[in-house]
């Protein structure tokens, strides 16, 4: 059924994609075990997860906290598109969950979880990496790093 894709998106395909993709943007701590359980599937022989956490330094400068700001409607739309692209590229994908945090985070907090399930492990690594890498390029979320003596919007300037 996933081959219908090339002939344009049918109602059935859209329905299938929406049932296998779970996207969330939250100002509450991410419940990692729940995110992992959400991709369990009978057809899965592999579950692969990326968990992004807040590091204590940035290019050697100690970080105190991060603030994430999102353009919510576009971020959710783009996150779904990234997951759908992964489902097109790896048609054996069983389920995908992406949860991104916003608001104030401290060292060790979970900022993002990407979880995918596939029949075999190789595709699970590839799809998980594709999703986090593409998320970082296109999803409308901004990170500000706060140090003891200042703050910087990450990647804003050359």
């Amino acid at each position: 059924m996933l081959r219908l894709r090339s002939a344009g998106r049918s109602f059935l395909l859209t329905h299938l994609l929406s049932s296998l993709i779970h996207i969330d943007l939250t100002d509450q701590p991410i419940d990692v075990p729940t995110a992992l359980r959400s991709v369990e599937a009978d057809g899965a022989g592999a579950i692969n997860t990326f968990i992004g956490t807040v590091r204590n330094q940035s290019t050697g400068r100690p970080v105190v906290r991060l603030e994430y700001e999102a353009y919510d409607s576009m971020a959710l739309h783009q996150l779904r598109k990234v997951a759908e692209q992964a489902a097109e590229r790896w048609p054996m994908l069983q389920k995908v969950t992406v949860v991104h945090r916003k608001g104030t985070l401290y060292i060790g907090d979970v900022a993002v979880v990407v979880a995918v399930s596939t029949p075999h492990r190789a595709e699970s690594f590839a799809a998980c990496q594709y999703i986090i890498d593409t998320l970082k390029q296109v999803v409308t979320i901004w990170k500000k790093e706060f140090y003891e003596d200042g703050d910087v919007w990450v990647a804003a300037h050359p």
């Binding site: 992004g52 994430y68 999102a70 353009y71 409607s73 576009m74 971020a75 991104h100 900022a111 993002v112 986090i132 998320l135 970082k136 390029q137 296109v138 999803v139 409308t140 979320i141 901004w142 990170k143 919007w153 990450v154 990647a155 804003a156």
Partner: peptide
Amino acid sequence: DEIALIPPVSGG
């Protein structure tokens, strides 16, 4: 249109 300015994104 819903128009927005998008500076360099830095999620993840």
